[in-house]
């Protein structure tokens, strides 16, 4: 009888429960998160960025894609409304903007405020949410991480960052960057593809 039951294909609901059980806890501790992220060698995903500001009649929506390869190669590309590409590879970062069909190198990447954002993105994708000494990282319930600046100078730029981790280990579903209560950026990631080899030129060339 038992043999017969074991030989039957597992009911989809049972598979779901088992899968959920296996995933429970990956984001309960920093060790679990680091272990989950350690399995990730590369990530490809699309994202939607919503900029919310009190002044805006409606949120400003941007669309783009990201490629990440551990430990620190990143291509962060906006398709709309402005086609721009941020490339980080071998410790060097460059940003290019398309204007009238041509890509031009952009100097905003040198802004100190931008350096903070770029450093954070690569740390998150490595699962090192608590690695930046400038932020106090707290792990709250339901796989949510809250990063709060430790210094007043940084708090003037960013009030806090919240990251919603996916049920699937190593994946971020959503990031909220609060500059104030009525000025924030929401990034929603979709269609993640993990551990697929990425050609190095993705991180070094705009096309």
């Amino acid at each position: 009888m038992l043999y017969q039951r074991l030989n039957k294909p597992l009911h989809p609901a049972i598979i779901l429960i088992i899968s959920a059980y296996l995933c429970i806890g990956w984001a309960d501790t920093w060790e679990g998160i680091r272990a989950g992220a350690a399995q990730i060698k590369s990530v490809q995903a699309e994202f939607i960025q919503e900029k919310h500001l009190k002044i805006l009649a409606r949120p400003l929506i941007s669309n783009g894609s990201l490629y990440f390869e551990s430990p620190g190669s990143l291509r962060w590309e906006y398709i709309t409304p402005i086609h721009s590409i941020l490339l980080i590879h071998n410790g060097a970062s460059k940003r290019y903007i398309e204007s009238d069909g041509h890509f031009k190198e952009d100097d905003a990447v040198r802004l100190q405020a931008m350096q903070v954002v770029m450093q954070e993105i690569t740390l998150w994708l490595n699962g090192r949410f608590d690695a930046n000494p400038d932020f106090q990282a707290s792990l709250v319930q339901n796989r949510k991480i809250v990063l709060t600046p430790k210094q007043d100078a940084l708090a003037l730029i960013i009030k806090r960052i919240t990251l919603q981790l996916s049920e699937k280990p190593g994946i971020i579903d959503e990031v909220m960057i609060f500059e104030s209560e009525d000025s924030y950026t929401r990034l929603v990631f979709k269609n993640p593809v993990l551990n697929l080899p990425i050609n190095e030129t993705i991180f070094t060339k705009v096309r």
Binding site: K51, I82, M114, I177, E179
Partner: peptide
């Protein structure tokens, strides 16, 4: 308001 493409208000 002026901001970076990433949405950071400058």
């Amino acid at each position: 308001v002026m901001m970076t493409i990433e949405g950071l208000v400058l």
